[in-house]
Write a protein that binds this DNA or RNA. Structure first.
Lengths: 241, 241
DNA sequence: GTCTATAAAAAGATAGAC
DNA sequence: GTCTATCTTTTTATAGAC
């Protein structure tokens, strides 16, 4: 039995709504997103919005569910290329996250909110997806540890949390806002600092070949200090510039 | 001329206020902290609060100023031990940040807020302190790069932003909330992942001595999987558990 | 299901007595 | 400077006509 036309229209409408919510959530966060704003951007009356989603929390939850679905789809896609080491898949997953963030499409929820967290925690669909994502990623992580490319001292949980946290890392927006670097450049740096740390890949004093045991993150060379495109007067200001 | 008694009382009162604001800011963030709440916890009427600080933003700014002052003081303290490599000083600074966070005393501001950011950006005292902190830290970073212990491909700015970002990293609260690990353990892991990345220190296949070129982060050994104190049924849930 | 109009509540800020 | 009581605005949510 084909989906009735009504139903399809409704789904399209709701997808448009979630699109807006997703963008606003990525842009200003949950508490600074107002329902009036959502309604205005979708181009419908607020009361109509509430016919589709019963509350602001439900709006946010819908956006979160969709991003989890997309993350799982990204994992599927990454796994389509067979036989690659787990660390490579993890790199690609984080790369996907960075791309999504850079595009302003990664909805971020406040880490330490109270009511919203409990609402999400009670959402069966959301929690189910979150669990599936965590377990699949956890599998990759454990695999990478057996391969020797993720530190074995770290519990899988710690690695998992760290990867999740990178999906709302303020460094990307800050670097993007500085306007000095390309998207590729920024994403490369973030990948590098996540997997290899600020100390960078193991640089044995003299120029040595890559250690094959560690699948090194591609480190894009940046131009030397002289040629570096740096706005002259701009002062470094990490918060509230 | 000694400070008048009135003035000293006022300062003590305001310090008590900032204490509360600081804790609430660390606990729930700016937007979920209400002025009513602050007044209640300080034990004074809201109107009296407004005699001391003209707005909620001013309250937050005061807390931020104080944490910057404390961070600068921490740098002073770290520099009191002479002759240590820059990377060691950076480690200690991040350690200070982690301790402060763990104690629930690191006020976190929303990264992508609008009005508050502009208020802070207009605050001369705040911006001045932020600049001083950034420049001093930037000096350490550049030094560490010359020593070869921070990746030279990374602009100082990127390293700086990354360190600042660790001061509001959700991984620490998550691990703390899991209740499975000690404070020391958590802080060690975060230091390690920040400087050495998820891949960990350069583990050349066979057990090798520490590479002296890289001042390695102390990696606390954790008990093996069998002995690891892990709550049995608890499932991993990075967001909204 | 969509709209206009309106409740209802929360939260920042202030008036005015003491 | 501190208080009680109140104002004002913002924002979530709903009533009720069409």
């Amino acid at each position: 039995m084909p989906t009735p036309l009504r139903e399809r229209v409704r789904l399209l409408r709701e997808e448009a709504i979630v699109d807006v919510v997703n963008r606003l959530l990525a842009d200003k966060g949950y508490e600074f997103m107002t329902v009036d704003e959502v309604a205005a951007e979708v181009g419908m009356a607020k009361a109509s919005l509430y016919k589709h989603f019963p509350s602001k929390e439900a709006l946010a939850a819908a956006a979160m569910v969709r991003v989890l679905e997309r993350a799982l789809a990204a994992m599927d896609e990454i796994e389509r290329a067979p036989g690659r080491p787990a660390i490579t898949r993890l790199h690609e997953m984080l790369r996907w996250t960075m791309r999504t963030m850079y595009a302003g499409q990664m909805p971020t929820l406040p880490a330490q909110n109270s009511d919203l967290r409990s609402v999400l925690g009670a959402d069966k669909v959301y929690m189910n997806l979150l669990l599936r994502l965590s377990e699949r990623l956890g599998g990759w992580i454990a695999e990478a540890q057996r391969e020797g490319s993720i530190a074995t001292q770290l519990p899988v949980e710690v690695v998992l949390f760290t990867l999740f946290a990178r999906a709302c890392d303020p460094v990307l927006p800050l670097l993007k806002a500085s306007g000095q670097y390309s998207a590729e450049q920024i994403q490369d740096w973030l990948l590098q600092t996540c997997f290899s740390g600020l100390s960078g890949p193991p640089a044995t004093a003299a120029p040595a070949p890559d250690t094959p045991a560690r699948a090194a993150v591609k480190t894009t060379d940046r131009p030397g200090p002289a040629a570096r495109p740096r706005r002259p007067g701009r002062k470094v200001s990490p918060a509230a510039g």
